[in-house]
């Protein structure tokens, strides 16, 4: 459960990070409406993941936190690439 929560935290944090990048915004065809909120979440969620992981003994907590960063990042990257493929289709058809 701890790993799952940490994974979600990292995934959403890196999703926010991705949505803040101009390259990804262009790929998705979106602007950045909630910049401050996304920046806040990007900062807070990894700390929340760390706080959750710290319930485990060291060094398991640290390994878990870093491991979930990797997996969460891959999931966020996967979601953003699926979204960019979908956003690309209507533009390509047009």
């Amino acid at each position: 459960m701890i790993a799952f929560i940490a994974l979600l935290c990292w995934m959403f944090a890196l999703l926010c990070h991705g949505l803040l990048q101009p390259k990804i915004q262009r790929l998705l065809g979106v602007g950045c409406k909630h910049r401050a909120l996304l920046q806040g979440l990007r900062l807070v969620l990894p700390l929340a993941a760390l706080a959750v992981c710290m319930r485990q003994p060291m060094p398991l907590a640290l390994l878990l936190w870093l491991g979930m960063f990797s997996l969460g990042g891959l999931m966020a990257g996967g979601m953003l690439s699926v979204a960019s493929v979908r956003a690309r289709k209507p533009r390509a058809e047009a």
Binding site: Q21, I24, L80, S81
Partner: peptide, 10 residues
């Protein structure tokens, strides 16, 4: 850092 989650399969 900017391209941390950037993947363009197309």
């Amino acid at each position: 850092v900017p391209d941390l989650v950037l993947f363009r399969p197309f």
